[in-house]
Design a protein around this nucleic acid. Sequence first.
DNA 1: ATAATATGTAATGTACACGTTACATTTTGG
DNA 2: CCAAAATGTAACGTGTACATTACATATTAT
Lengths: 70, 70
Amino acid sequence: MKHGVRNSVKVFRKEKGFTQDQLAEMISVTRQTIIAIEKQRYEPSIGTAIKLATVLNCSLEKLFWIEGEE
Amino acid sequence: MKHGVRNSVKVFRKEKGFTQDQLAEMISVTRQTIIAIEKQRYEPSIGTAIKLATVLNCSLEKLFWIEGEE
DNA sequence: ATAATATGTAATGTACACGTTACATTTTGG
DNA sequence: CCAAAATGTAACGTGTACATTACATATTAT
C-alpha cells in the first residue's frame, strides 16, 4: 500500500473556481504541494488536510478517504 | 507554529478501553507513533488520521482540529 | 510488596511531505 | 492566432513522520 488515501481536492477546487496558485496561497503551501496532492502523489498531513477542507468548505470525509472504503 | 494541530486520541482511546499497543496494532503502526501523536509531538498523515478515526469510531473533526479553531 | 502490564523516553535510521527554482506544456481569452 | 494564464515536470534540499530497539517509570492486580 504505497499510499491508499484518495482525495477530491481538484473537484472541489474547480467547483469553487480557484486556481492551484490561489488555493496554495490560501492555505500557505506552495503550488507544488497542491499539484502533488491533486495528482495523488502523496498524502498530506492532517494539518494541511484540515486547512484544505476549511477553504474548500467541505468535510474531511468528503475530501479524503481510504481507497476501497469509499 | 511548530504544529498547530491538536487531537483527542488519548481521550477516545481510553473511552474505548484500548491500550496504546492495541490501538497501534489495529491501525498497523508502532506504539511509538501512538505515543507521539497522543503527546502532540507530531501530527499524523491524513492516512493515519483516517484509520484512527475509523477504529475509534468518531469523526476526523472531533479527533483533530487546528489550535485556536476548536 | 511484587510481578505483570501499560506508558513514557531516548537514539538512530529511512521514507516522504513540502519547499524552492526553473522550465515545459496545456488551456483560455482577446 | 497568439499571448497570457494555468497546469505540469524535474532536480535538489530540509524537516519530520514513522520504524526499530532498548530501557525506564507508572499503573494495576494479586
